[in-house]
């Protein structure tokens, strides 16, 4: 059974067809790279999978059903969306504590995820003063609160320094090795090539390539060929 199933998904914003009859599946225990030019519909697709955007037609299933029907969403899916936002006046710990409480998770989860993303030292600082890289780490910590089986990440390496990007690669690889699923949208092909098993490339809202990423193949060449 696939972890994520997208079936004939379409969405228009006004006259712009953002996602157009898009179908794909993401297998469990894999890292799947979700690629495409700016405006290809990646973010809209991810938001439809997460129930934040309602599709015009088609459906997205995660763990067997629509996101909105999940009994325990945070244990099923963790998501880091583009430009993840925080209340600037709240500390990282307060932000996590609010969502931990809402999700009904154990209190120690907050310290655990802060430690997982190496943000323990900044836990009691206000998020308004965080660098982009720190915000990405806090967003990832939030996604990890429920110890989810599936991680959906939109441009997670954006703002990370080289050491941070290296750390994220190792983290995601270890995550997939535990049998969990990672779907990650990114523009940094050289980075994702090192860890991805599968590739989905979309352009103008349509899938232009889906398939495994063979070892030794050139992802950049594949991408440029597919989106030409």
């Amino acid at each position: 059974m696939s972890a994520i199933t997208v079936t004939r998904l379409s969405k228009s914003f006004g006259a712009v067809r953002a996602v157009d009859d898009l179908s794909f599946t993401v297998g469990p225990g894999t890292i799947t790279a979700f690629l495409g030019p700016n405006g290809a519909g990646k973010t809209t697709t991810l938001r439809m999978i997460l129930g934040l955007v309602t599709p015009d037609s088609g459906s997205a299933a995660i763990g067997g059903g629509p996101y909105r029907d999940l009994v325990d969403p945070v244990a099923a899916v963790g998501a880091v969306l583009e430009a993840a936002a925080f209340h600037p006046g709240l500390t990282a710990r307060a932000h996590l504590e609010i969502l931990r409480t809402a999700a009904g998770l154990a209190p120690e989860r907050v310290d655990h995820v802060l430690d997982q993303v190496d943000l323990t030292g900044a836990a009691d600082r206000r998020a308004g003063g965080f660098s982009l890289g720190m915000r990405q780490r806090l967003a990832l910590a939030t996604a990890l609160l429920g110890d989810p089986a599936v991680l959906i990440l939109d441009e997670p390496a954006n703002g990370l320094d080289p050491a941070g990007a290296h750390w994220l690669r190792g983290f995601l690889r270890a995550y997939a090795l535990q049998g969990r699923t990672v779907l990650v949208s990114t523009h940094v092909l050289a980075e994702i090539q090192q860890i991805a098993d599968h590739v989905i490339i979309i352009s103008d809202g349509r899938a232009v390539f889906t398939g495994p990423l063979a070892p030794g193949s050139d992802l950049e060449e594949l991408y440029l060929e597919a989106t030409r």
């Binding site: 129930g51 934040l52 996101y67 945070v74 936002a85 925080f86 209340h87 969502l99 809402a102």
Partner: peptide, 10 residues
Amino acid sequence: TITWRFLVTP
């Protein structure tokens, strides 16, 4: 932050 809230509580 509503995005986080709706992710936790669809």
